[in-house]
């Protein structure tokens, strides 16, 4: 579904992503793990269009999407969430969700003035959809709350909810479970699995919680120092020596040399 070919991203002298090559299969929930600074989020940003890669190419199916803007990628069904949850803080939760579907007739001056019926009907349909999503995520009690007042975990749910407002092909989740309590994490996990099974969403997620990864992800891709270290099932990856070393650092072996 997504193919990343030898992507580099350099910021000045820092090689944040240094020749990453990987593939995300259709219908999978692919995990992307690695120590801090491994280049996971930078790679996400390159794929999802926050900035273009310095070199290398990205494909969505048969189509090259290297360097497209987030807006164009959104239209192609590639969605993402953010590590630090983004929300429209001065809009209600429901309005946040209703903002997602593109090209609504209410945004066109002509339709807004001259065919209010059409605009209303469309808006009612989107509102129903938003209410379904709110129901699905179990956040009905805060539906009319301003999104800025939500807790961190609820904002993460809202992030996930946004991806459900349109027919997405692939969703990139950047640490959707970070800073979320166990119960809420399970809710999020269930939602991801249901979306994957029932609506055929492909997911690629950066995550640090290994239990969460183990429950959801197959395969798991490990990144370290800007490149892909290995790929395998959660069990294979977690028992691999290179991965342990990447996480704990070279310092474990040569502690004295590094100086503690």
């Amino acid at each position: 579904m997504i193919r990343v070919e030898n992507v580099h991203k350099h910021f000045g002298g820092v090689r944040a992503v240094n020749g990453a090559t990987l593939e995300i299969a259709q219908g999978s929930i692919t995990g992307l793990i690695g120590p801090n600074g491994a280049g996971k989020t930078t790679l996400f940003n390159c794929i999802a269009g926050a900035f273009p890669p310095t070199s290398g190419r990205v494909w969505l199916g048969e189509e090259e999407i290297t360097g497209l803007t987030p807006h164009e990628l959104f239209a192609k069904g590639l969605l993402r969430t953010f590590q630090i949850a983004h929300e429209f803080s001065s809009l209600t939760v429901r309005d946040n969700l209703m903002m997602v579907p593109p090209d609504q007739s209410g945004e066109r001056l002509w339709d807004a003035w001259f065919s209010p019926r059409k605009v209303q009907a469309e808006e009612a349909a989107i509102r129903r959809k938003a209410d379904e999503v709110i129901e699905f995520l179990n956040i009905s009690h805060v539906a009319d709350e301003l999104a800025g007042n939500l807790s961190g975990g609820q904002k993460k749910l809202l992030e996930l909810g946004r991806t459900m407002m349109v027919e997405a092909k692939i969703v990139f989740l950047d640490e959707v479970g970070a800073g979320v309590n166990r119960t809420l994490l399970n809710t999020i996990g269930d939602a991801i699995i249901r979306l994957n099974k029932e609506r055929g969403y492909t997911f690629c997620m950066i995550e640090h919680d290994m239990d969460f990864i183990g429950r959801l992800c197959d395969p798991v891709i490990v990144m370290a120092e800007g490149t892909v270290l290995m790929q395998g099932t959660a069990e294979q990856v977690l028992s691999d020596e290179r991965v342990i070393e990447a996480y704990l650092g070279h310092g474990v072996k040569n502690k004295a040399e590094v100086g503690g």
């Binding site: 987030p70 983004h86 429209f88 903002m99 945004e107 946004r162 349109v166």
Partner: peptide, 9 residues
Amino acid sequence: DLALLSGVN
């Protein structure tokens, strides 16, 4: 950023 990632034109 978020508006660009939603349907807002």
